[in-house]
Design a protein around this nucleic acid. Sequence first.
DNA 1: CATATATATTGCAGTTCGATATAGGTGACG
DNA 2: CGTCACCTATATCGAACTGCAATATATATG
Lengths: 192, 192
Amino acid sequence: MDVKTLCLGVLSRGDASGYEIKKACEEGPFSHFQDASFGSIYPALAKLSAEKLVDCHQMSQEKRPDKKVYSITESGRAALFDALVVPPSPDKVNSDFYFMTFFAQLIPADFLRAILERRIAWYEGVVARMQDCELSIRPAGERFTHGLGLAHYQAEISYLKANMDQLLREIEADQAKNAPQTTSYLTRTASA
Amino acid sequence: MDVKTLCLGVLSRGDASGYEIKKACEEGPFSHFQDASFGSIYPALAKLSAEKLVDCHQMSQEKRPDKKVYSITESGRAALFDALVVPPSPDKVNSDFYFMTFFAQLIPADFLRAILERRIAWYEGVVARMQDCELSIRPAGERFTHGLGLAHYQAEISYLKANMDQLLREIEADQAKNAPQTTSYLTRTASA
DNA sequence: CATATATATTGCAGTTCGATATAGGTGACG
DNA sequence: CGTCACCTATATCGAACTGCAATATATATG
């Protein structure tokens, strides 16, 4: 989804500044499936404003930097609708964690264990916070998407807990076999 | 993961051309968690070659365009190792599908149903192909990552099948209530 | 026989990322 | 009571990346 449409989506739920849009993608309801940086959000808002898809009100705050609050216009809602009724392009996933587990046999077992445990703890926290949040007042689509994300994270936690010990045993056995003569990673020969 | 490391990872499993690396990210074992375009892969390979992390052999093929086959060097394997033993940065997910379901109440129910059914069919195909593939010969890390992806897709299919009818009923009821006077999307008033 | 698909690379315009600059407020700690 | 780290808030800039077209050839598909 291009950043302009993402901004329209956030603004369709209520007025927000560029900073608040970023937060919605980082910690808020969009954090599980959208990502955008300031370097793309601010230009996107400027373009949307020029196209009259959003209105901008300067808010002089005391004790805070000035804030530009954007509101979606009727044309903006129409543009959001137009962007929603096209078949979605495939998900783009970039996961260093999966990349790392793929090459698990190259990684020292202790380091790998720490990474796996951190991942489980992280997602358990995410799930706990998601289960806490009040959904009954939210629209059907938001509830559905929330449940879908939850199902995904819970499945990942389950799998990791059920399989990580077995993986670590195999990795340890493999590394003991292939490099019994040294404890230094620097002198290893490529065993991949 | 930067594209250079991604290329090193692919090449650690065997020699490949830029085109073949792209295919590994599109259809191959990396397709579930990595993405990169030609425009980033070819420059990355050129840089890796300049840094002596990969070797390049020009292959003049008959009946095909020439091919540059890259092989990872020992320094390349060391660089891959160095990139693997740092804590992975958070996953980056960009999903137009999730974005769409989040705003389900804005979307015509028939269109939404078609999108949901297409998604289920797509992931069922993915799961079927993943279950087909022979894993016993693959390294432990690859098997583990494969299983993790499979668990994720299966959880998503389950959730969609269990909850899509309920969502569509709610959406239909909502749209019938909010716009009983018209069947045209163009004349709707913003009901979000 | 036209059209589409697959192999294989390159270049480019536009988009996005990540870091940095700016600048005051807030809370914690000894 | 200083100061240190972090939060709010916007803007900018180079580096990196994407998506697309161009180029060329061979094989399927209808």
